[in-house]
Nucleic acid binder design. Structure first.
Length: 565
RNA sequence: GCGCUCGUAGCUCAAUCGGAUAGAGCAACGGCCUUCUAAGCCGUAGGUUGCAGGUUCGAUUCCUGCCGGGCGCACCA
C-alpha cells in the first residue's frame, strides 16, 4: 500500500514527465522542449483530484491537438500508480486524475502525526530574514494604522518561520532629531502649565492627552524642581523621560497585541558610531557622492531612482535619508539574507530611492523587499470615526484592543491584502454573529472541542482513538462532506507555502473561513458522536484533524483558538 | 504633469507561474433549534471582471491606450 510520503503530487508529476519522455523516445511525440509540469486542484467537483494542463501547453510545441497529446500520455500513465483510480481526458485536453479514497484518508493520519507542525515545511535554502515593521515615531501612542503594520509584520514573520526560515523582528526607533526636541518641549510646557502657568504650545507641538499625563507623572515624582532655571537645562531630561515613557507604552501595547520585537534599533546609535559618515564615505569611494549647491548628493539615478538625493544639507545637517542609508547598510552587514520593510502607503514614493541606494552600496536589491500597506478607515456602524492628529484625537491601537479584543483586531487587519485600503468597523468587530468572521472561525474550533468533550463524557478515549487510528479505521468516512473536508485540509501545507512566498497572510484568513464553513456545514448535517462506535472513531479522527489545522492556521495569524465560547 | 498602485455581484473582498461553468461573506428574500454549542445550517437571487484594442488553443490574470479612485513626487522627519 502506498502512502502519501511515497506517492503524492510530486510523484505524479514525475510520472507525467516519464510518460512524455517515453512518447518522445518511441516517436509518437517529437518535440524537444518541455514546459514545467504542474498539477492544479480543479475548482469544480467531478473533475478529479488533480488536473494537469500539460497537453494544452504541449499543443504548440508538438503541433498536435491537445486531446490527442493527452491520449498518448494517458496511455503511458495507466496502471502506473496504485493510488490513481482513474484518469480522464476532459474539456480541451485536461488530464484529470482521480485518486483513491485511501490516498485522502492517509492525509488525516499525517495531520495527527505532525500535529502543530502540520503545514510547516523546510525551504530548499534556509534564509536569515529580518522584518522591520511598525517603527512608528516614539512621540505618541500607537494608532490604528500602526496596528495594521504590526499584525501584518508579525503574521509574515510567523509564516516565514513556518516555512523554515530564521526571522528577526525589528523596530526602528527614530530617537533623534527635531521631533524629539519638540516632544521634550511639549512635555516641559505641559509641566509648567500644571503649576498654573499659562503656556503657549508652539506650532508642531504634540497636543495629545498623553503628554499631559507624562507631565503629571513628573510633577508627582519630582515636584517643582524643573521650574527653576532655563528650559535648555531641563530639555534633555524631558526628552529622555517622555521618550522612555512612550516607548515603554508602545512596547506594552505590542506585547499585549502578541508581538515582542527581537530588537529595538536606535537611530541615535548609527550616528554615534559614525556609521552614517562611514556609509557616506563608502558611497564616495564608489564615486556616487558629489557636491552641488553646497549640499552633498548621492547619485541614485543610475539605479532606478527618479533623481539624485541630498544626504547632507548645505547647512551641514544630515538628512533622514542619510540615516536610512546607514541603517540599511547596518542591516546587511548584520548578515541577513533578506530584508523586509513594512511601510505605510504614504512612503511608497520612497521605495525606489532606498532600493537604488542599496544597490549602489553593492547589495543585490532583490534582497530587500518593501511592502506597503494602505490606510485603515475606522468605522462605527458604517460611519467614519473622526480622527485628527493635530488635535490629538486619533484612535489608538490600545483603545481598539480594549474595545474589540486582540483576536478580532488582528483578524480584521489581516483580512485584506495589505495594498488595499481597509475598513475596520468597530461595532462589527464586536458582534458575536456570523457577520463577524473572527467568531465564525473561532466558533468552529470551540465546537470541535465541544464534540471531543461530549465524546469523552461518553467514555471515549479520544487520544487513544487517534493514536490507534489506521486506514481501515477511517474507511467509514465516505460522505461527500467528509471528503470535501479532507481535501481542504490537504491544501493547507501548500497554502502556507504560497502565502509565505507571496508575503500575503490574508490568504490564511480566507482559508480558515472556508474551512470553518465546511466544518459548520458538516456539523449540522452529521453527528460525530453516535451509538455506532466504529463510525464515531472515524469521525473523531476527522474532526480532530480539522481542529489541528484550525489551531495551526489561527496560530499563524497570532489569534487564539478558544476551547469554549 | 510625472511615477507607483488599484478598478471583479448593491457593499466588502477572493480567484492556485495564463486554465474548464469567475467564488465567499454581508445586505435582501424563504426555511431549520426535545439530538455533539443556532456565535450555526439549508435554499433563492445577484456578473459584458471600468472601457477599447492586442498577444494566446485559452485572459480577471500579460501588453498598449483611455476613463475613474488612492498614494507619492523636499536641502521635512
Amino acid at each position: 500500500m502506498n502512502n502519501q510520503s511515497q506517492f503524492g503530487k510530486s510523484a505524479l508529476i514525475n510520472l507525467i514527465a516519464a510518460a512524455l519522455k517515453s512518447c518522445r523516445e518511441e516517436g509518437s511525440l517529437s518535440g524537444t522542449t518541455r514546459p514545467k509540469i504542474l498539477l492544479e486542484t480543479p475548482k469544480h467537483e467531478g473533475r478529479g483530484d488533480f488536473a494537469s494542463t500539460i497537453a494544452l501547453m504541449l499543443a504548440k510545441i508538438e503541433k498536435k491537438s491537445p486531446r490527442a497529446i493527452a491520449a498518448l500520455l494517458v496511455s503511458k500513465l495507466e496502471n502506473q500508480a496504485d493510488c490513481v483510480e482513474k484518469i480522464e481526458i476532459a474539456g480541451p485536453g485536461y488530464i484529470n486524475f482521480f485518486l483513491s479514497a485511501d490516498y485522502w484518508l492517509t492525509i488525516l493520519l499525517n495531520i495527527h502525526k505532525a500535529q502543530s507542525a502540520f503545514g510547516h515545511s523546510k525551504p530548499p535554502k534556509k534564509q536569515k530574514i529580518q522584518i522591520e515593521f511598525v517603527s512608528a515615531n516614539p512621540t505618541g501612542p500607537l494608532h490604528v494604522a500602526s496596528g495594521r503594520a504590526a499584525a501584518l509584520g508579525d503574521a509574515l514573520a510567523r509564516l516565514l518561520e513556518a516555512t523554515g526560515h530564521e526571522v528577526h523582528r525589528e523596530y526602528y526607533l527614530n530617537d533623534i532629531g527635531v521631533q524629539m526636541t519638540l516632544l521634550g518641549r511639549s512635555t516641559y510646557l505641559r509641566y509648567r502649565e500644571l503649576f498654573g502657568e499659562i503656556v503657549h504650545l508652539p506650532e508642531g507641538s504634540y497636543r495629545g492627552a498623553y503628554i499631559i499625563e507624562i507631565a503629571q507623572a513628573l510633577k508627582a515624582a519630582e515636584g517643582e524642581r524643573f521650574l527653576e532655571g532655563p528650559e535648555a537645562d531641563h530639555l534633555p531630561f524631558f526628552i529622555r523621560y517622555s521618550f522612555d515613557t512612550i516607548v515603554s507604552r508602545i512596547r506594552e501595547d505590542l506585547h499585549r497585541f502578541g508581538i515582542d520585537f527581537d530588537h529595538w534599533f536606535s537611530e541615535k546609535t548609527i550616528h554615534q558610531n559614525t556609521e552614517v559618515t562611514d556609509a557616506l564615505a563608502d558611497l564616495k569611494s564608489k564615486n556616487l557622492l558629489y557636491e552641488k549647491d553646497g549640499a552633498q548628493w548621492v547619485a541614485t539615478t543610475g539605479f532606478g531612482d527618479d533623481k539624485d538625493r541630498v544626504v547632507v544639507r548645505s547647512n551641514g545637517e544630515k538628512t533622514y535619508f542619510a540615516s536610512d542609508i546607514a541603517y540599511h547598510r547596518n542591516k546587511f552587514e548584520r548578515g541577513y539574507d533578506r530584508l523586509i520593510n513594512i511601510w505605510g502607503a504614504d512612503h511608497h514614493g520612497y521605495i525606489d530611492r532606498i532600493k537604488a541606494v542599496v544597490e549602489a552600496m553593492g547589495y543585490a536589491p532583490q534582497r530587500l523587499t518593501v511592502l506597503t500597506h494602505q490606510l485603515v478607515n475606522l468605522l462605527r456602524d458604517g460611519k467614519p470615526v473622526k480622527m485628527s492628529k493635530r488635535a490629538g484625537t486619533f484612535v489608538t491601537l490600545r483603545e481598539v484592543m480594549d474595545e474589540v479584543g486582540v483576536d478580532a483586531t488582528r483578524f480584521f487587519f489581516l483580512m485584506r491584502r495589505s495594498d488595499s485600503a481597509l475598513d475596520f468597523d468597530l461595532e462589527l468587530a464586536k458582534k458575536a454573529t456570523n457577520e463577524n468572521p473572527v467568531f465564525y472561525v473561532q466558533y468552529a474550533h470551540a465546537r470541535l472541542c465541544s464534540i471531543v468533550r461530549v465524546a469523552e463524557e461518553k467514555n471515549a478515549d479520544v487520544d487513544e482513538i487517534i493514536q490507534n487510528a489506521r486506514l481501515d479505521t477511517l474507511r467509514l468516512l465516505t460522505l461527500p462532506s467528509e471528503m470535501s473536508l479532507i481535501r481542504e485540509l490537504s491544501q493547507y501545507p501548500a497554502l502556507v507555502r504560497s502565502a509565505a512566498e507571496a508575503l500575503e497572510p490574508h490568504r490564511i484568513t480566507f482559508y480558515l473561513q472556508n474551512l470553518a464553513g465546511l466544518l459548520h456545514s458538516y456539523y449540522f448535517s452529521c453527528r460525530v458522536v453516535t451509538e455506532d462506535a466504529a463510525l464515531t472513531k472515524a469521525r473523531l479522527v476527522l474532526v480532530t484533524a480539522v481542529r489541528i489545522v484550525l489551531q495551526n492556521g489561527l496560530k499563524l495569524l497570532g489569534i487564539s483558538a478558544p476551547e469554549k465560547m
